[in-house]
Amino acid sequence: MAALASAGGHGISLLPATRPKGGSLSMPTPTVFVIDDQEAVRHALGEMLTVFGFSVETFGTADLFLKQLEPERTGCVVADVRMPGTDGIALTRELVRRGSTLPVILISGHADVPMAVAAIKAGAEDFIEKPVDDMQLVAAINRGLARAFERLDTQRSLESLNSSFARLTAREVEIFDLVVQGFTSQAIAAKLELSPRTVESYRAQVMEKMKAESVAVLVRQAVRLGRITP
């Protein structure tokens, strides 16, 4: 691996990627999971990543990692391609199958183009040849963590939106759908045989429950919920 002293001249951030500022949802502290059947490699990578400020856990096999992995864990996987039992590419496929948000960076001392292509097709974030360059690996981990945070934010934001929508009554859902389709309160009143004042009351309740400060926000929410197509 490249000497740590060379870190300053590459023009990239050496700090672990953090949750994007401005998000409203809390994120667990991410961990870099290093998986390699060679103890010397695990130790070297673990020490280097710890120096760069990452929280690190190491595993000798992918099978042991998968057995102990808790679904809510966040972070990034750095795994060798060739290992006894489940190899790095099979590990990547299994994480994708489980719906894991963990990005995977595969490393190999016997890399070739077909292997790299197979790794990316399996869902790997990046593919790096051994001996591993510290800066290249840190940059890849930071990119992976940044994308993972974005996916988690999007996922949790949608879950929150679905939760708000589920609180609407059947009548409020009717009002919601008509408002986002562009119907005025007068038109909704005529369509549902309600008074305009009643429609305005329902509309205000919908806006409050959905935490929408404008009709434009409500329309964007409807698109995300699949109630209308953009």
Score class of each variant (00 low, 15 high):
T61L: 01
V34L: 01
I35A: 02
I12G: 09
F65S: 03
A40P: 12
I35N: 02
E72C: 11
L69G: 02
E47D: 08
Q38W: 03
T74E: 15
G23D: 04
P71C: 11
L25M: 11
P20Y: 10
G23P: 01
S24C: 10
G53W: 12
P28W: 02
A17H: 06
G8E: 08
A62T: 10
G8K: 07
E57P: 00
G22Y: 08
A17M: 07
S26K: 14
A62H: 09
L15W: 04
T18Q: 07
L66E: 06
I12A: 08
F33G: 00
M27V: 07
V51N: 04
S55C: 12
P20H: 07
T61H: 03
L69Y: 02
D63P: 14
R19C: 14
G46D: 14
F52R: 01
K67Q: 13
G75H: 05
T31C: 05
H43F: 09
E39S: 10
S24T: 14
D63A: 15
P30C: 15
L15G: 01
F54D: 00
P16H: 13
S24N: 11
P20C: 09
G60F: 10
T29Y: 03
T18H: 05
E72H: 14
L4G: 13
S55H: 07
T58C: 03
F33K: 02
T50M: 04
S24G: 08
G75N: 09
A7M: 08
L4C: 06
L64N: 08
A17Q: 06
L14C: 12
L15S: 06
P71D: 08
P20I: 02
S13Q: 03
V51H: 09
D37P: 13
A44G: 13
G53T: 12
S26I: 12
V34R: 00
V56E: 01
L49K: 02
M48Y: 09
K67D: 12
E47I: 12
L69I: 05
E57V: 10
S6V: 14
P28Q: 06
T58S: 10
T74P: 04
D37I: 04
M27F: 10
E72L: 11
E72I: 09
V41C: 07
H43D: 07
A7D: 12
R73N: 03
G46W: 15
